[in-house]
Design a protein around this nucleic acid. Sequence first.
DNA 1: GGAGGTGTTAAAAAC
DNA 2: GTTTTTCCACACCTCC
Length: 479
Amino acid sequence: MESSQQLTEYELKRLDNIRRNDQLMASLKIHSKVAELSAASKRQRVGIKSYKVSPEKKPKTETPIVIRRSLRTRGMPPDYSDSKGLGDIVEAADKVSKSPTSSKPSPRALGPLSVRDAYRGTGSDKLLIERIMEGSKKENKIFGDKNGGDLMEGVSESGSCLELESLSLNPENIARVVPGKILNVRFFPCSDRRIIVVGNKFGNVGFWDVDSGAHEEDGVYLYHPHPGPVSGISIHKHSLPKIFTSCYDGFIRLMDAEKEVFDLVYSTDGTIYSLSQRSDDVKCLYFSEGPGGLNIWDERVGKCSAQWNLHESRINTIDFNSENFMATSSSDGTACIWDLRNIGADKPKYLKEVRHKRAVQSAYFSPSGCSLATTSMDDTVGILSGANFDDNSMIKHYNQTGRWISSFRAIWGWDDSYVFIGNMKRGVDVISPAQRRTIFTLQSPHMSAIPCRFDAHPYNVGVLAGATSGGQVYMLTSD
DNA sequence: GGAGGTGTTAAAAAC
DNA sequence: GTTTTTCCACACCTCC
């Protein structure tokens, strides 16, 4: 064994650096996060696609190391007057850092974060960035040719476009994309490719390029752009290289694959619970903030163009149909439909309200826009349909997920025939709104955890992504 | 009425 | 293989 006297000056200096880095990391409380990610990478099973974490990587500008305590975590009500857009960020950072009582975020942490610095993988993410850019160029060309129209493969004019019995899980289509609980899952809106984006409770954003073919990274890429749980992911069909993500800690970032940066779009002391965009508007972001607030961020003016208080408690989802209607679901036990042309600036008035007995986790419009599906902790899935959404039916569905599993959210398939929702027996329940009952349950021996959050591929009928609270993603297909 | 405490639940991590 | 840990939902209970 070498004694310290035999160490070279360089080695001593290096050990000293390591010791000081350890102290710094301990003081910033990120040791646990690193250990967690390293441990997770050791545990992965052979044969299952998984993220791989680089243990050495210590980025210079790491957002998560900033101890940033929001008003909420300090037990104080949110101060909406302090919400800052991009134009005011430097000023906001200065103001906070001068405060003697609050912890001091680095102003750099409030700026853009390079994709390279946010990356946590072992290999290169060059292939992913290339794939995203390729997909974007192709989609933009298609939309240019088709004058912006949507094209869905396999949709027939009448009846359902999907044979339920053919929906299955191929063991090849399983990947561990991030560590921990997934809160959001989205397909990249690209017609000839399956790229799945997820956000987890640690602030990671993971990508799974399903059609990548076998290579070192398994097509799985892990980033860490946020300090807290990722509450929303939005990728507009007509603005493809741009991936918006929001987090509980009050940040909205834009991953621009072209610029290779996670830009900071919006920052607030409030909690951001959900994020959405309208299909006919690429310039505005709709997001929920604090207990019941809903804001519209307008990119053209660089600030919020509207701020409403629509609910008594947090807004869990925001969705739109093509008729200027917006649906919100809230933990106050209601879901509401709003007419955006006539919402009322001061005292917003809903067009329709659905009352559940407990918190409402989601409210999504059907593909036609004529129905609404709500999911509530009161063990029902509500279907609102008919003229003026006057018909309301409540379908029994067990939704008690406990605290470790993300709450269930019923989503629509590729037409108005079916609604998909997870169940506690590691299956996917299919509800028929017409029959007002669960008509089918998809189960697979390969599904080792409960799929709780879903997304239907926007162009490929029968391609359904289910995400679990252990970081796994299942891609069901109907081949 | 609201602050504070607790039970629920499944999967990963640790043993 | 078994036990421990996770802990940013929510509902329900008690106490003040």
